[in-house]
Write a protein that binds this DNA or RNA. Structure first.
Lengths: 198, 198
DNA sequence: CCAACAAGTCAACAGGTGTTGATTTATTTC
DNA sequence: GAAATAAATCAACACCTGTTGACTTGTTGG
């Protein structure tokens, strides 16, 4: 009686939730590598093995799809909630180095999606809301300083700058031997600490 | 006998260099506020008071126009050449605060143009070349450290991150009273120093 | 088994993009 | 002043975009 039991072979079944998920997944991968404007709905539909029309039907349009990609992955917020100010530098440094569990890499990927499409007017609105509510807010709260807001901005600036450099500008001094990566992590931790204490 | 002497009134004369300059100026202003993909050639042509066809004719296409906008403004490089490592933090901090002469603001604006359009595939190539040759290279040379390359990346990351935050994400904690701006400048100088010394 | 409904397909639309060729207009040169 | 050349205009092009409506097909409920 369950939804997807009959015929485990490749023959497509008619499952609305499954195709919706397929579209969402394909869109996520595309938006991770190209900007909002560059990605066409036909590209996404092709990757998902689905007709283009279904996207507009299921998500109300391109903008709705993009919003859902971001909202679906925001989960419990872009930062791990139980986190003290003292732990912050080490946590962010690991985020930058992309060293860590799958979940942590996932969070960094969301930053990339936002960065890639931030310049697009339509995608920009969605992104700005998310940044303010789910990143800047929690960050400032964790810091709890009197200059918390400014410090949060500085941390985010570093994080985003590295993201831009690595993925968009393709300046990658971070790819290297494990020893190099460890050194990078150390220096970035210092940088984050400086942003918090100076 | 000079090129543009007759009739100083508003009646348009046929001056190829003048219209070329008008297009270039209009394009610069547009690319400063919108991304490569968002800006249409008809928008630029409208601003410049010129027919659209002239753009493709004079610059060989949209991509050529964008390249020329960036190359025209690179002047003597994005960084002031005679600059020591010790002066770097203060210089960059002033760049961030947008406090300084017109020339310095102009340099920061070039960063914005690059950031806005970095995600676009076509514009990306142009930008990446420029970043490597005219920013990262000189920066590393000024630093002259054994970890110069990594440090240069860190400095640029901060610079770009702030640019993204301010102009694209529209997170602006930097606009404020002169006292606030001064405090920001101080903190960012500290941050830049940390990137150079830690 | 058959009607009712949902899921998927197809084709076309309306709008916008950058670019190009033919044409007209102004400026220079002889 | 007439011919030659450069500058600007106009209209259309081919292409691609997201989106919509009508249609077909599979699945489910009575």
């Amino acid at each position: 009686m369950s939804r997807t039991t009959t015929i485990p072979t490749g023959i497509k079944k008619r499952d609305a939730i499954a195709t919706r998920a397929a579209i969402l997944s394909a869109a996520r991968q595309r938006f991770l590598r190209e900007s909002y404007d560059s990605v066409g709905l036909r590209d996404i539909a092709g990757d998902a093995g689905v007709d283009v029309a279904l996207i507009s039907r299921y998500f109300g349009g391109k903008e709705g799809l993009f919003r859902d990609v971001l909202l679906h992955d925001k989960d419990e917020g872009l930062l791990r909630q139980p986190l003290t100010a003292a732990e912050l530098p080490a946590y962010l440094a690991q985020l930058v180095i992309e060293d860590g569990d799958e979940d942590r890499q996932h969070r960094m990927e969301m930053f990339i999606v936002m960065l890639r499409s931030a310049s697009s007017p339509k995608a920009g609105e969605v992104i700005r809301d998310l940044v303010h509510l789910d990143v800047l807010g929690p960050l400032a709260e964790i810091i709890g300083d009197e200059h918390a807001e400014l410090r949060a901005n500085m941390l985010l600036a570093i994080l985003m700058g590295i993201g831009v450099l690595r993925t968009i500008m393709k300046v990658d001094a971070l790819d290297g031997s494990p020893a190099q990566r460890a050194e990078c992590e150390y220096r970035f931790r210092c940088l984050f600490e400086a942003a918090l204490t100076c």
